[in-house]
Design a protein around this nucleic acid. Sequence first.
DNA 1: TCCATATTTCCAATAATATGGAAATGAACG
DNA 2: CGTTCATTTCCATATTATTGGAAATATGGA
Lengths: 111, 111
Amino acid sequence: MESITAVNQLAALAQEHRLAIFRLLVQQGQEGLAVGRIAEALGLANATLSFHLKTLATAGLIEARQDGRFIHYSASFDAMNALLGFLSENCCAGEPCLIAPAPCCPPEKKP
Amino acid sequence: MESITAVNQLAALAQEHRLAIFRLLVQQGQEGLAVGRIAEALGLANATLSFHLKTLATAGLIEARQDGRFIHYSASFDAMNALLGFLSENCCAGEPCLIAPAPCCPPEKKP
DNA sequence: TCCATATTTCCAATAATATGGAAATGAACG
DNA sequence: CGTTCATTTCCATATTATTGGAAATATGGA
């Protein structure tokens, strides 16, 4: 991964609304969510939401898919994995690894 | 983790020089690196480097430690883990997890 | 105490980003 | 082919970040 790509992706995430959008989409998995649903969930003006979606899409962090009259956006897990990998690259100077394993979806625990 | 914290940390990383500094420190492990060494490695003016180090430190991504006449900065792996975890939180809508396991320090392979 | 070296602060010019209302565009379906 | 609903573009304004030279500060050692 190019450093400039990572900078663009981090900049895309470094904004309250865009971070919320991205996290929401990560939680939705591959299915993603229609723009209108995102607007509902986060309460953003049309123009503002569209601007932020475009920024995230241009950075490669989310992808658009037409679905009937709707456009579904979903997180690009490939891009996300590449970015997380880039941050962790060659870490820890040979010491035991200090970066936690992927925290998502552990085998379910009952509360 | 608060969303505002994550935004600040992502903004801190969303800059070419700061990203380079952070990745360099991640690679150095807990030992870290003196400011002068970072300057050597990245070729930054004193004022510029100091500004970026302060930004990263304020965001909580790196920590300073006095070592003789030098100040060593090191990556905060706790902060890094919290940030990566925040991005991945509740991911994937119950589908099989799409986020790659931590890529660092796999059991060594000989080339 | 005083020196030498390491690091930070001060400064002000330049450049980039976030915002939402209203209008325009796009897509599907009868 | 026109209607309807979903989404994007246009616009102007206000806020915020980045830069390096020079001077100031901090530290340890003699």
